[in-house]
Design a protein around this nucleic acid. Structure first.
Lengths: 198, 198, 198, 198
DNA sequence: GATGAATGAGCGTTCATTCAT
DNA sequence: AATGAATGAACGCTCATTCAT
């Protein structure tokens, strides 16, 4: 395992791009975007900075590529949601699937959550915002009371908080995940109940 | 030449420290901590960078001082809460007062929310975290179900989300504030109901 | 001689800006603009690159400042010329004075001559072009034949060529200067003679 | 797959070397040598940078090859001139033919004119200089007065200026060309008259 | 006849920070 | 209470060049 000739350099068959993405995401999530320098990424990979530029035109392009690669499931979810009837069961399913999607790209979402100021100024900022708005519009009934609308948004943010903020709670991660999901579903359920007359 | 009131320089009778804090907070909240340079702050105030160093030992000290000055109400709130009985009414009051406290230092909290990765590495990171834990421990009943614990945390995050994320909703800010507060109080109420058996 | 305290650093009373300009002009003229790096300039002055940035906002600003400082005489000459009657004697005087002005800022003009492609993309490009046009319009009679117009431009370029291209001719510089001036004056004289019919 | 004539790639039957030269000259003349990167040339040709290195050993070799290919007529002219008697008519013919030669390789000469600082440091610098000296020695009578020698050099520079500097004059290019040639011939004629006593 | 992948050196620029005055 | 002048370290980025395939 390792190189075919010697062990000095790891296998480098054409997976460098992927390796850059992996290391970059790890560092971005750990220390933030601005505090992570290209030098640092390059050193971890044992290549030169210039090698990064062979694979990505700018530093921003690295995070953009990660965003595009990893948020596809959410985009799919939104499209699916738009074609469903706006029933309570649909909303619940959206919450469940969104929870899964967050889980599937946890480091990226941790990064987005913790670097909002940065993200806002990056190209992905608008894209992300419009996705969140898309999601919101599916689970919110525009006719409902403001309170119920807030409940729906709160449901989404409970999922986010569940991933990153509640990590220091002493409890089994899997159980916590279930509890978070339950609270979120509860919120959209209450919102729906209010919206449909009493 | 260069009288005290000639208008060329704004009134500056020893309030420079305060003015630095004001401008810094504005810029930190707007563009993030790392993207705001001391040069930028100095230029806005029409003083030199070196002047900032007369008032603050480092860049970090500026944000630390803001944090200390502006989060005192929350510290007070926690101390007050600790001395109250752990009744539902206390919890509701905590939520109400926390909502007010957030409002009173909105730009700082916006900054903390949007620069979590940065804050974590700053000296204020731990302080902030321990305050949030303190608050949490007051409104959470450790005996209650995990779901109810999540409800309480969700209540706090609903307040946060209410300040920053929901700003683009079309609705009167004051009404939104009330709706957010209602949802948060609802969450701790439900949590309390579960926790006291029923 | 040297510093007041020690000889390690030359006197540095506030003349650094000037010293940067001097060294920069020398190097720009010698090796061209792009091939001269700020590192090189800084090293020659025994300061850091960052010190250059205290005095000039960008590399381009260094050359712009040189241009502005050193071409003032030519600007003055143009303004003077515009207020004179368009007689032959005026034109001859323009040529004489322009020759002096070139002499007074020889390194800058050498630089401009030898880095035209670069200058064109710099902020000074347009300014320089419009100055040359201004000069031209003073010594050219728009009614004259194309040939005579060419003679006038040729006169100006003869002066330029005299400074830089003819330097390798074996001959006393002062005599060459006189000869060049004679040819240039001859050209405008011939142009004038043609233009006045006779 | 990838047929010879499918239009995806332009016809490329071994003419890549030529195409590199064409594009390089265009870009060198337009933006200068240093500001034109091999990446840019490669991208315009839709090949990789490495492909350039198949055809030329270095960046410098590209400009050298252009110089050698395009200045052959001038080399021929000089050799022809050397074998002619040093009569006025010969000199006039030299001027005429040089004007044609400049026209035939206008972009290259524009490049040389506008990038003198660069050219000086390149291998072609000396070659070019010696060619100019060769030309000069043919039309200059070493016995003549300094003024007349300057006239001859001025004649050559008038031709140069005619190509590049006078392009913004409002006038038919062909007429301008004739006028420039007339002035240049006039200059050598005057020089010759002086040189032969009279 | 060319590409894919990479390098090493260097660039212009910005930053937080220092210190004598 | 503040400035003028500078530094050292780092940054994102680009360049000409190389070489195995």
């Amino acid at each position: 395992m390792g190189g075919t000739m010697d062990g000095t350099k790891q296998q480098r068959r054409g997976n460098t791009r992927q390796r850059i993405q992996d290391v970059a995401l790890e560092l971005f999530a750990e220390q933030g975007y601005e505090k992570t320098s290209l030098r640092e990424i390059a050193e971890r990979l044992d290549v030169t900075k210039a090698a990064l530029y062979y694979h990505f035109k700018t530093k921003e392009e690295i995070i953009v590529s990660l965003f595009e690669d990893l948020t596809q499931p959410i985009q799919d979810l939104i499209e699916w949601g738009r074609q469903q009837p706006h029933t309570l069961e649909t909303k619940r399913e959206i919450i469940r699937r969104y929870s899964d999607a967050l889980d599937g790209a946890a480091p990226l979402f941790r990064f987005m959550q913790e670097n909002q100021a940065t993200v806002r100024e990056l190209r992905i900022g608008d894209t992300f915002k419009s996705r969140m708005t898309g999601l919101r519009d599916i689970i919110i009934d525009p006719e409902s009371s403001l309170t119920d609308q807030v409940r729906c948004i709160s449901a989404l943010f409970t999922l986010h908080a569940g991933m990153f903020v509640m990590q220091d709670m002493e409890s089994d991660p899997e159980e916590r995940r279930k509890a978070v999901l339950e609270v979120a579903i509860d919120l959209v359920t209450q919102a729906d109940r209010g919206s449909r007359g009493h």
